[in-house]
């Protein structure tokens, strides 16, 4: 469905050195700089997949989304989406996808969201019956009926993002590109949007390509993730494989029934240690052995085994890969 081969995107700009001299030089003989935002990037996505694009700020995620949607053309390489070349900007292609940018709105600020939906109905030439059906379904899922007549500027960020998603999905797109869809939203709204995207994917087999800084979005939605760093693809695979690769530890927390003065020797790295409680990083392959030894030697009141904190994992992904 989506085939991207050896994609490259260069940006050209003039660089200004500091100070007055720098300004003069910039005016008469500017230093021209080329920045390659995306380098030799290839991947394929099948229909119905949910793929997460992750990477630190400035890694090239948004540039990639913009090339996939035809907003900017690539400098080199090819993109084939459902047989279309995005940069040709054919109407038939643009009718097949939706792009939702967390920081850019398509809603008319001073009018109710319903008016923007009406405009999209005309732009996408959505038949009346399909429009009514989709609108009702989407409004019911997001429980936003009460806000449809309210001016967009009076809506909360969460309500606005739900309206953005509704506006984008009225025409039943085959592919949805989401660039930071949950940015700035509270936990409840984030969860609702994740649940909804999952439902759309399952029921309509919509292909979803998602960028997000919230690893929870990626973890709960994406079957496959692509990590991009400094414009290059540095990983492609499942979230779990990635976590195993960069984080070979589990966090084990043990609460003892009675105070333990002397602990046996364990192959762990302690994060917290006192007579009543220990918290440690344990190599995944040694978790069973460590837990077994603790049960053999001590009376244990409580035991918790968890993955490493997701924020730490993300930091490691960007640092180590």
């Amino acid at each position: 469905m989506i085939r991207v081969n050896h994609l490259k995107r260069d940006y050209y700009f003039k660089e200004k050195e500091p100070g007055f001299k720098g300004s003069l030089r910039y005016l008469f003989k500017p230093k021209k700089v080329t920045k390659t935002a995306v380098k030799d990037f290839s991947f394929h996505i099948k229909k119905g997949e949910i793929v997460g694009l992750i990477g630190p700020n400035g890694a090239g995620k948004t540039t990639l989304i913009k090339m996939l949607t035809g907003i900017i053309p690539p400098s080199e390489g090819t993109i084939d989406i459902m047989g279309f070349v995005p940069s040709e900007l054919k109407d038939d292609f643009r009718k097949k996808y939706a792009v939702i940018m967390g920081q850019k709105s398509q809603l008319w600020w001073d009018l109710p969201a319903l008016d923007s939906f009406q405009l999209n109905k005309e732009i996408y030439q959505i038949p009346d019956a399909q429009y009514e059906k989709n609108l009702k379904e989407l409004v019911d899922i997001f429980e936003v009926e009460a806000f449809l007549q309210k001016q967009v500027r009076q809506l909360s960020l969460g309500q606005r993002m739900k309206m953005e998603i509704i506006a984008s999905l009225l025409h039943d797109p085959e592919v949805i590109f989401l660039d930071e869809p949950t940015i700035g939203l509270d936990g409840v709204a984030q969860k609702q949007i994740r649940k909804f995207l999952k439902k759309v994917n399952e029921e309509r087999h919509t292909t979803i390509i998602l960028t997000s800084h919230y690893m929870e979005d990626i973890k709960s939605l994406c079957e496959r993730i692509i990590v991009i760093n400094d414009g290059e693809k540095v990983y492609e695979g499942t979230y779990q494989d990635l976590v195993n690769k960069v984080s070979p530890y589990k966090i084990v927390e043990v609460v003892f029934e009675i105070a333990v003065e002397v602990l046996i020797e364990l192959p762990v790295e302690y994060m917290e240690k006192n007579p009543y409680k220990i918290k440690m990083k344990v190599d995944k392959s040694k978790v069973n052995e460590v837990v077994g030894q603790l049960f053999n030697h001590y009376a244990i009141e409580d035991l918790a085994i968890e993955e490493e904190d997701i924020t730490d994992v993300v930091e490691k992904i960007y640092r180590d890969i």
């Binding site: 913009k66 949607t69 035809g70 907003i71 900007l89 109407d91 038939d92 292609f93 643009r94 009718k95 996808y97 792009v99 940018m101 850019k104 709105s105 398509q106 732009i123 996408y124």
Partner: peptide, 11 residues
């Protein structure tokens, strides 16, 4: 960059 959303529309 607010032209992005307009370019993405099929008109």
């Amino acid at each position: 960059g607010s032209l992005d959303i307009m370019i993405a529309k099929p008109i």
